[in-house]
Each structure stands twice: as C-alpha cells, then as structure tokens.
Design a binder for these strands. Structure first.
Lengths: 222, 222
DNA sequence: GCTGTTTATATTGTATACAAATTGAACTGG
DNA sequence: CCAGTTCAATTTGTATACAATATAAACAGC
C-alpha cells in the first residue's frame, strides 16, 4: 500500500490505540481525511483494513465507529489466538530448520536483554516478542494460518497492556519461551502446543488482572 | 455494501469460481470495471474483499491476480476449518438454545429432502448445508470466530466439488449432521467437536479423491 | 550477444465533483 | 403531547481526471 493510504492507516490506528478516538466514536471519512491530510479515497482503504482487524466496526448502514472491546471480546480473541498459535507451534515443531531455531534463540536472548535493561525496555521487549512469535508462525508454513492470526495479534489491547507488566511477568514470559525452544529442539509438537496455549492463556489473565481487577470481572467493558 | 460494489464483487467472484478467470490471470482494475459495467472505484472495493477471502492475490506491487489453490493450500484451509468449526461446535453445544436446536433439525431435514429429490438437488443441498453450519456458528456466539471462518468457508474449491459428490457421499454428510444433532441434544461439547472435525476432514479427502485421484497426490496444483 | 540504461506503456494511487442514501430535526395533524 | 411525515443536512457511494509508479520494450555501450 502506498504512501497516503499507509499514512491514513497509521494515523487512525494510532489514535484508536492511544484512546484519542474513544470506543464508539464515529469515524467520518471526511473528518479523518482532514486529520490525516489526505483525501477520502485512501481513508476508505485504511478503514477497510482496520475493519478487517476489528478495530473499526461498520454500522448497519456503512458508517464506521471505533470498535469497543469488552472483556468478553478480549477473552474471545485470546482464546482463539491460543488455539491458533498452539496449532502453529505444533506444526512448527515438525518443520523447523536448525537455522530457524537459531534465530528463535537469538530473538529470545534479545528479549532477555530488553527485560534486564534499566529501566526495562518495553518497546524492545514488544518488538522482539513479536519477532519470536512471527518466526514460529513462519516455520509453521501455513499462509492461511498466518493470515488468520494477523487479525488477532494486532489487538488494541495488547499494546496498552505490556506497559503494565512488572519485570516479574516479563521474566515469566521469557521463561515460557525458553520452554518452547526446548520443545522445538526435541521436535515435540504436542509439548510445544501445550506450552504455547498456556503461554497465551496466562497472558490473557495477566491482562484481565491488570485491567479489570483481580477479583470478579466488572462487566462494564473496558 | 451498495449496488455497484456488490455487483462488481459478484461478477468477479463468479468468473473466478466458474474458472472463466483462470488461476494466475491478471485482474486489471480497468478491465474488470468494463466487465462489470461500473467504474474502477467499486472494483477496488470488490478486489479488497476478494483478497480477504483469498480468492485474489496481490503481487509485491499491488497488482491483482486470481489466486491459485494447490492441493497443499486446500489441505491447509481444510485443516484450519476443521479446527475452527470443531471449536465452534464445542462452544455451540454449551450455548445452544432449544429453538436453535429445532432450526438445526429443520435444516438437516431440508438437506435430506434435497438429497432424496430426483435428480439430487445439489444447489438445495449446498444452501441448506450452509445454513446448518451457519446456525452452529451462530450458537457458538463468538463474533471473531465467525469472522475467521468466513475467510475459509467461501472457497473456490467447495462449490465446484459438491457437484461431483455421489448420493452416497451426500447421505453420509447428512448422517454426520444427525450425529452432531445428537451431541448437541446431550450438550456434549467434546462429542460435537470430534464429530465436526471428522466431518470436515472427511470432506477434504472426498475432495482430494475427486480432484487428484485416489492414490498419491500429483503435486501439480489444481 | 549480453548487460545496463532509457523511454514508453500499462496499471495502480489520489484527489475531487457529484449522486445516492441515510440521519435527524422541524413540522403538521391528530 | 405524540405519531407520522417532510425536508434539510450530513455521510457514504460512484465516476472521472490526473499523478505516481511499476512493467516491459527498445536501445546503447561493452
């Protein structure tokens, strides 16, 4: 996608993720065009992409709004992500080359360094974490699986959450990655899948605890 | 989506599914616009939708082509579909209302009638089969799951295949639906999931047998 | 004869003007 | 005061013109 469309996509996405455009806010094409300094045409493209990623919802008659992610929606997305990434891990265990395994180890080392930095380098953590999961997905060799997961990993939620993680949680994440590496090294797909599912489901609960209190779910959405 | 965009979508989609636009054929926006009798703008929208459904592939630099589905691609898609619809069946078993169960029974009865017609009413079969699976997905109550499956169920492949099915295969499909209904009636999610996974994986092998011979896979794509 | 560059052509990206449709408010009749 | 209707304002859909870019062909130099 080219300049203007990408620009529109990035700007709108950032405004949604930062909360500047709150859940439920109407996304008029002309207003967004002004905001991004482009015409309506690329804005329309951007809205379609964002709609595919479920950050934008279309009303019955084609008006766009910022999607609101209730805790149930988030749970739903995490559950699917756990299933799909678990499946990816299983496939990857059977297909991973030695070179890919090396790169995976390097990625997790980079994660460890980001965590150990003072203060912890959250941006670096996110970046390398993304690379780690991306490499597994690559080794799974299923373009369709990758396409499906793409709509789930770019959640509004994940990004805002990581900054709330303590060093404790980050270390645990790193440790689970180490266990994944061990499973890959042994070519044990079932093990890899189980670890991955646990890894992601734990991430969900970390999110839920941080955003909705440790006790019951408050039910009022985000 | 409105008139012209829908029109473009339908026309292009039909041409792809019918094989009139063969795999690998370039999809120039202007040519398609002429073909559909609309301007390039709605064609672009249609191409985006079709790209999401993986019927259209974009080259490195934004040129569109008819996607080619190799047997590996089809296997990949069916595997994911089995997993996701299995998951949907499990969820549906816990959430299905009595009313939904009734509608599901009605849908399968309609399927039986379509099969029994002389000659077998393939179009009716497909329609009611679609409704059957749609109802389960609805009862699963996971919008995101529905969105993911939407990209997998509309395969070029499925439609062209059903016409090759014998009455035998259609009846088996109906029988598996009956077993699903039993699982739903008992609220046995694990049973429902297992039956659904088997149902879809069998469908894949029926496809593979019909299109690539019963023995080894020929590997030359469709 | 081959490689790298230039130029022409084809194709997609963007902006804008206008048409169609939807929403919401003002208004009329009861 | 409320229901239904009409009309204005807002918003999205479509067409078209033009700009930017990529592909492919012609060509020059080696």
């Amino acid at each position: 996608m080219s300049r203007a469309a990408n620009r529109a996509y990035s700007v709108i996405r950032d405004r949604i993720l930062s909360g500047e455009l709150p859940a439920g806010a109407q996304l008029g094409e002309e207003a967004l065009a002004d905001l991004c300094g482009v015409s309506r045409t690329p804005v329309r493209d951007a809205l379609r992409r964002l709609e595919g990623e479920l950050l934008v919802k279309r009303s019955d008659s084609q008006r766009c709004f910022v999607a609101d992610w209730s805790i149930d929606d988030v749970a739903d997305a995490f559950e699917l992500r756990a299933m799909l990434e678990g499946h990816a891990a299983r496939r990857a265990a059977d297909r991973m080359t030695e070179a890919a395994l090396q790169r995976l180890r390097a990625a997790n080392s980079a994660i460890r360094e980001a965590i150990s930095a003072e203060p912890a380098d959250i941006t670096g953590f996110l970046e390398h974490n993304r690379a780690f999961h991306g490499l597994i997905l690559e080794s799974a060799q299923s373009p369709r699986l990758a396409a499906l997961l793409a709509t789930l990993i770019e959640q509004p939620v994940v990004w805002r959450t990581a900054h709330h993680y303590g060093r404790e949680a980050l270390r645990r994440s790193h440790g689970e990655h180490e266990e994944l590496l061990a499973a890959f090294a042994r070519r044990d797909g079932a093990w890899a899948e189980a670890v991955m599912v646990a890894h992601i489901r734990r991430a969900f609960h970390a999110y839920a605890d941080a955003h909705h209190g440790l006790g019951a779910i408050d039910g009022q959405g985000r």
